[in-house]
Computed example of a mutant assay.
Amino acid sequence: MRVTVVRGDITAEQVDAVVNAANNAMRGGGGVDGAIHRVGGPAVLADCRARFPRGLATGDAGWTTGGDLPARWIIHTVGPNRHAGETDRALLVSCYRRCLEVADELGARTVAFPLVGAGVYGWSVEESAGAAREAFDAASTAVEEARFVAFSDAAYEAASAALE
């Protein structure tokens, strides 16, 4: 699997699936989650409600329609919230591992990732990228490209250093 890092807006990526850094409720939120729901439109929330009536556990992943996004699917994953006491790094690694497993179930070959857990959930870009690298190195997947999409120049530099 090829791992790349780009600077941009994950909602505009031309890939099979985009990964959403969701919250447990699976009803939209701020940051990446809010942007994906806004651009994806009401079909995304409707699919979240239908597929995840009780939400999703931390470290797990599931999929919905891409709605109005260029991507066909959204793979939602719930990262651990360090500020809420969820400091087990294995949960962060699990997010990336589960995303690849869901991508394989869907037949997705190109997947755009945010830096799960980095930002409001309190993990650094380096910690998130390191967890991704660990999951990817151990994965047996048909995904051909894992593309990390950094929203800021600082995140792009840190992710590039950690992943490439």
Rank of each mutant, 00 (worst) to 15 (best):
T11Y: 04
Q14S: 07
Q14T: 01
D16T: 09
D16M: 07
A17T: 15
V18Y: 07
V19C: 15
V19A: 14
N20R: 12
A21G: 00
A21M: 00
A22N: 08
N23T: 00
N23H: 01
N23E: 06
N24T: 15
N24Y: 09
A25V: 15
A25Y: 14
M26A: 10
G28K: 03
G28V: 03
G28F: 08
G29Q: 05
G29Y: 08
G30A: 15
G30F: 14
G31V: 04
D33Q: 06
D33G: 01
G34M: 00
H37Q: 01
R38L: 01
R38C: 02
G40F: 13
G41T: 09
G41K: 07
A43L: 10
D47V: 05
D47M: 12
C48A: 02
R49H: 13
R49E: 15
A50V: 11
A50L: 15
R51T: 13
F52M: 07
P53Y: 13
P53E: 13
G55H: 02
G55T: 01
L56E: 01
A57L: 14
A57N: 15
T58W: 06
T58N: 07
G59F: 00
G62N: 12
G62H: 08
W63M: 10
W63V: 03
T64E: 11
T65F: 13
G67A: 14
G67K: 14
D68V: 08
L69Y: 07
P70W: 10
P70S: 06
R72F: 07
R72C: 04
R72T: 09
R72M: 10
W73P: 00
H76W: 09
H76G: 01
V78Q: 13
V78H: 11
P80G: 01
P80C: 14
N81I: 08
N81D: 12
N81L: 10
R82W: 08
H83D: 06
H83M: 13
G85R: 08
G85H: 09
G85A: 07
E86R: 14
T87A: 09
D88E: 15
R89A: 15
A90W: 12
L92I: 01
S94R: 06
S94G: 05
S94E: 01
C95R: 05
C95G: 00
C95I: 03
R97H: 14
R97Y: 14
R98N: 03
C99N: 14
L100H: 03
L100P: 05
L100V: 04
E101F: 04
E101G: 00
A103C: 01
E105Q: 15
L106F: 07
G107K: 09
G107S: 01
R109I: 02
R109K: 12
T110I: 15
V111T: 11
V111G: 07
V111M: 11
A112C: 02
A112H: 00
P114T: 09
L115I: 06
L115S: 06
V116I: 14
V116K: 02
A118N: 04
A118I: 04
G119T: 06
V120T: 10
V120M: 13
V120S: 14
G122H: 13
G122N: 12
G122Q: 10
W123A: 09
W123C: 05
V125I: 10
E126I: 05
E126D: 05
E126Y: 08
E127F: 11
E127W: 10
